[in-house]
Design a protein around this nucleic acid. Structure first.
Lengths: 187, 187, 187, 187
DNA sequence: ACTGGCGGGACGTCCCGTTGAT
DNA sequence: ATCAACGGGACGTCCCGCCAGT
């Protein structure tokens, strides 16, 4: 028997998640102590741990959200829009986000946890989107699709890493160079 | 008058540094506790902190070494060799290395510390190398050098990030696509 | 909205303070390790440092309390009562208390910290009391008040130091001599 | 078979002791780390611990020296000279010296260690000197000698404590008051 | 005689998450 | 639902003294 409305509950969850994102961005995962989370969120430990079992779950939820959002974006809007969206992100948060991979490697049990969450979201493959583009003639076909996808991933990761390291970036010119390497019509 | 030979001393430093690199790679910076450093290095706290003032100095030294090595490499051997070298690196370590940027952002005093250390090493700019390539005709000249450098950085960072995230990579095909975007003769 | 009563909170503070006083008296400041504080207080580190930011604050609070108590005492009841009160103190604690001066000298920032705290307590000067006594004719007026105050301070400090060093003392006879003087020819 | 002359040996001991005294005065006993002792003394740990078994022995030796020096002084030159000598001492060192009593109380085994050392020095009693003064008529005889001695000790300890606390002092006027007395009605 | 590499222990601090109270 | 008192563990740092080496 919930005492408050579902809207209130989800609103609280959002409040907590957004505060947590700010705190993580500002201090990094390990230095975002629960005290600092409290401060940024505006709720006490008790409330926070009432909605999330522990600190890691907060970070994990945020990471999963990014992942699904970006995944959706590349499928529905293409590489360029994703790149621009990433660049619109808080670079501090991107820096923290990069730690996800390390945490997963360090704690192998997280891998399956992530796997499970991502399949729950039922995300179609980004590669299918690439195949479409290739068939439309917007993508060169003298290179296997796998390699093209790999290249795209490298560039996107590069944008994340570069921007996260604090260096300003001219995304458009990077994207132009990517297209000229990929798109036969771009010459 | 040191009581042991200089060889011994530098050997110890290397032993500590290499052990620390393994420990950082295995656990990440924060989770590489001093106890784990001891274990991986094979020396006691006393010994370790006799050679380095604190844990951060260990990480910092390793990061500076990478930076100078990579810097030298791109100048003397070019982008491809650097990309291959990075890919030959321990991906776990690369993951930790990515945190450097975040630490610097979180602790601004580290920025100048790094700056100072890097200028001490007196490294010539990698951009000069790019200009040479452009003059040799190996690099397109219809795009400003700055943009080309930015693109190269993105790709290199991308390789770091991608590989650090645990995904295997066909570096050669990525490099091929990079060249086709950059090198007018490659078409 | 506190979850326990204010009485409980202040009681806890007192419990911690009194336990700390015992621990300091028993072992001295530096040797009163946090483990020993826990033992003497009967609460965990977590609890103790929930009420006080660090170990020094505990000592500092105790010292300030003594200082204000003694200051009040000399003003309201006079030198003799203060001397007797000091003598009723735990000599071990007095020993630790003497270290305060050294800590202040070693860490100059503590001086202003103490200054600030003492002015917050708004204590009237003990010297004013001496002036009253002088006007009442209970104090010789052929010697400047400053010198008399200095002498009184020396004697009081002497009682602290003497008693803290473990030597029993006949305070009354000391006080008598203070009042009368030593040298028969001075009469 | 000593390799160096006895002069050299005792000179080294003195060098170590004086450096240690400075270090203790500057930092206090616990904060005078061995590293700081090395710095102030100008010798390495090895040398220091070659002459003294541990850090405490250094402090203890210094304290014993003071004690015997002051003891001799009061017997041979009287209270006033002792008071002036104490006042000529480094107040920082006096502050550290005050810790002796606490250490002895905290570590009872030190009591007998000190006892033994002091009797080795074969010091005649200071009280005998007081008796002489009394017989000469320089000391009132309407108060038991014990009480007079106690008072003197309190004043001397007071000078130590007062000066050690960093407060400047007019020793002469204090001594004058000691000699004369406080209360005009007592004349 | 003197150096300093090194072991290993203990310290104060901080931090996460539980729990009982409101 | 929310709070904050509290436990208890682990962290990085520092420090003393031993002893192998010169």
């Amino acid at each position: 028997v919930p005492k408050v409305s579902d809207e209130h509950l989800t609103a609280r969850r959002e409040q907590i998640l957004e505060g947590a994102r700010r705190a993580f961005a500002k201090h990094g995962y390990e230095s975002a102590t629960v005290a600092r989370l409290e401060e940024e969120i505006g709720l006490s430990r008790g409330a926070i741990f009432h909605y999330f079992p522990d600190k890691w779950s907060l970070f994990f939820e945020l990471a999963v959200r990014d992942q699904t959002r970006w995944n959706t974006l590349i499928i529905e809007r293409g590489i360029d829009d994703l790149a621009r969206t990433i660049y619109a992100e808080n670079p501090d948060w991107l820096g923290v986000y990069l730690e996800l991979a390390r945490h997963i490697r360090t704690h192998p049990e997280l891998a399956e946890q992530l796997e499970q969450r991502m399949t729950e979201e039922e995300l179609p493959s980004g590669k299918a989107r690439l195949r479409e583009l290739q068939e439309e003639g917007a993508l060169r076909d003298d290179v296997p699709l796998d390699k093209l996808a790999e290249f795209v991933n490298v560039v996107l990761n590069g944008i994340v890493a570069q921007y996260a390291s604090g260096t300003e970036l001219d995304v458009e010119s990077v994207l132009k160079l990517v297209h000229e390497g990929l798109d036969p019509r771009a010459k």
